[in-house]
Amino acid sequence: MVLTVLGAAVLVVAAVIVAELLRVGGPSLAQTGLWSFVKNSVWDVTRDVYGALPFIYGTLVTSGVALLLALPVSVGLALFLTEMAPPRVRSIVSFPISLLAGIPSVVYGLWGLFVLVPLLRRPVEPLLARTHLPIFTGAPIGLGYLAAGIVLAIMILPTITSIAIEVLRTVPGSLREAALALGATRWEAIRTAVLPYARTGIIGATMLGLGRALGETMAVTMVIGNSPTIRASLFAPGYTLPAVIANEFAEASGAQQTGALAALGLLLFAVTVLLNIAARLLVRAVRRGPARVAA
């Protein structure tokens, strides 16, 4: 009985989170209406106009850049550690990777602000600007979507890598051996036997990484430039959902602004919870052992 009460504490905590978020953010959301809140691209505190679109856009762009950069590196790293490297390398490398996961996000922000941003300002962004792509235009100020995306990529790398490693370990050795026995090279065995089998799990790992990127606050706040605008260029400063909450919540000028910020929090909460539920279900299905054999 005592135990059941303690166990139910987790459910109570979840219920409290939902109830409190609804209490603070709900009225403001209900007043504006979800759709007009989401599609309004103006965030002007002085006029009490609160639209969520710049933040949603910024969150999606930075997380997208982060995934684009982190996914190939994480999967490559996971493949290297599980399929290619000798066991000794694996045990040596697993420590720094776990270290990467344990560094507080404000320290990543510090590094991003004083190392990455100057590096982007010169020489990286001027070099990228030579490609004349619309996403690489404008003044190379360093602070912006690109900087935030890169910092996020570094931060979600250990998340995706560790789950991908876990998933790759569930691939039965017989599949790999069958491919090798048919004359496949090691890479061909990975491509034709290992990766198709692990695909679902790697998608799950990616979604968990994405969930982390969407909600990451400090590091992004410090390097994104904090400007509630929507720009196509990755060089431009932007804003994300968690960043605007971090910057404005403590100093919100009135109940309306607090309500709007909490409504942004509610949106972020809903999205990350849905993403996490989907991802956990996927990863869980893989862990439980597959009923299917990949083609």
Binding site: I17, E20, L21, G215, P242, F249, G265, L268, T272, N276
Partner: peptide
């Protein structure tokens, strides 16, 4: 997996 800033609001 819930972002920590959300917990701050709570």
């Amino acid at each position: 997996g819930v972002p920590s800033i959300i917990i701050g609001i709570v």
